[in-house]
Amino acid sequence: MIDELTKGPIQAVAKKSMASGKRVNRKNHSKFIQALSLIVFLILWQFFSAINAHFIWFNPQFFPSPMIVLHTTWDYLLDGTLIQAIGASVIRVLLGFAFGSLVGVLLGIMMSQSRLSNDLISPVLNMLGPIPVFAFLPIFMIWFGISELSKVMLIAYATFLPVLTYTMDGIKNVNPTWIRSAMTLGATRYQIFTRVILRAALPNVFVGMRISLALAFGALIVAEMMGSSEGLGFIIVNARNWFKLDDMFMSCMLIGLLYTLFNYILLFLESVLFRWKKDGIQSAVER
């Protein structure tokens, strides 16, 4: 009896730490499988292009192996064009994405605060919204020239609409009890807006930004393919003329890597900014 009493809490603690240990294990396990999936993918790719190179079912040049792509990447890296291309693309997407997000947030705030501006702007956005961004590229090129500006503006345009929608949504869905609390605590309208409404809506703004990121990359590549002399998109169109499929594969892989990197940066910012959030269903039920 005494034994059980004294053991009780210790066992409980032990169980608890075991549970969290299990969670870490599961996380590592999942990471391992994900890495494995990528490795298997690359091996299969290498394998099939090698078989094709042997039997020549079709021109092996059209299906380069990962090793060849890696080799091409190395060559590009050595002669400096790769850094230049990545630099050009990164600067474009950063500028366009930042500008588009800023406009989206500001317009979202404005439209959620004034009915008049909402009534004025939202019909236009509802009309423009469904039109694919790429349809506007020629128009942007005539308006802003075949310069950097037209590309950055297209990326910004692709970015701003989801950010705006999610910002407005976040502001609209602020828990009214928070606003009431702030009112009884003597906050002014301005304080309520900055310390409660915006703070509460910020996670939603980031959701909008992560959705926009994919669109921004789409706009970047299309803009670079249409009228550009550098960048990852340019490498693809340029390679088309010479059937350099290894260049194309390299560019596609790098675009994917860049997007993943940017997405991780956003996720990291979120995890720092929204530390106060519960970590969702993961911590709600243990599985």
Binding site: T177, R180, T184, L185, R195, R199, W276, K277
Partner: peptide, 19 residues
Amino acid sequence: KPSSQRGVVFQDHGLFPWY
């Protein structure tokens, strides 16, 4: 109108989760 002279405690506490 609401005033800091009248404090309110809510059933669902209404604490600001980001603070």
